[in-house]
Amino acid sequence: MTKYVIKRLLGIIPTLLIIITVSFFIVRLAPGGPFDGERNLPETIKRNIEAKYHFDEPLLMQYGRYMFDILRGDLGPSYRYKDHDVNFYIFESLPNSMILGVIAISISVLFGISSGILAAVKQNTWADYLGMAFAIVGISVPLFVIGPVLQYVFAVKLQWVPTSGWYTVDGNWITIILPAITLSAANFGTIARLTRSSMLETLRSDYIRTAKAKGMKSSTILFKHALKGTLLPIVSYLGPAFAGVVTGSVVVESVFRIPGLGKFFVQSSFNRDYTLIVGVVIVYSVILIFMNFIVDILYSLLDPRITYK
């Protein structure tokens, strides 16, 4: 097992190198460049800027320089935000997105799995229909609707919480509730539906029938015999879902005014801010690869048929 873990961790390195290389060249294929917005620059200034960022060098050389910086842990300067470099923007905003994302995914998992199990056990009763109705709402209503509706009900009408804010800005933790719920909605729905169908399938399996034939209580059957099999597909869903959620959502961040990473995904693309784009891609990839690794480990813990050597 230890050997497997080391092997997998080492395997991350070539994967990342490929991702970085591909992103480096692809972003430069898109029309336009980082300084196109700044019109009518005098030729000399333009040349100075290009020289500062090494745009005058051949692309391969830029690539080599960039890779060398990355190996030292430096994601380079942002081409748009002049005050700080990419490292600064990412490491300032990522923790905010992480905290919000972890809370959101925990809500999704907790409520998704429990309502999925309830729906499966009480199949075709009002509990099932109600749970699945919520799930559909969570999946299909967009964030920019859920967010403002929650704000309107709980902040404006009931005045239980402020409409927006963030603890690093105003020191108030309570403002995290609404965005976390908003961000959890879609994953809650998907997890609830996945759990329900997975549980129904497991409950129909032969080994559950064996457990019943032995005279076991339904609750014991549910938690001792059926739960592990039920959780397998949910675990594999959670890997990418986690990576998606902890890297921020531009919609939730702008609705609730949260200084998160999500906005950089969008803004950096519009700005052709090459280093920032590749920077957030790297962050996302690292988290995704790492989560898939965690999923595989969890899988082997849940399912004895899977062993890694």
Partner: peptide, 20 residues
């Protein structure tokens, strides 16, 4: 079930719980 009447099922490959 199990105590008075017990049962051996048709398919041994799937009738035991693979997780336990």
């Amino acid at each position: 079930r199990g105590n008075e009447i017990s049962m051996i099922f048709q398919d041994p490959m799937t009738s035991l719980n693979p997780f336990l």
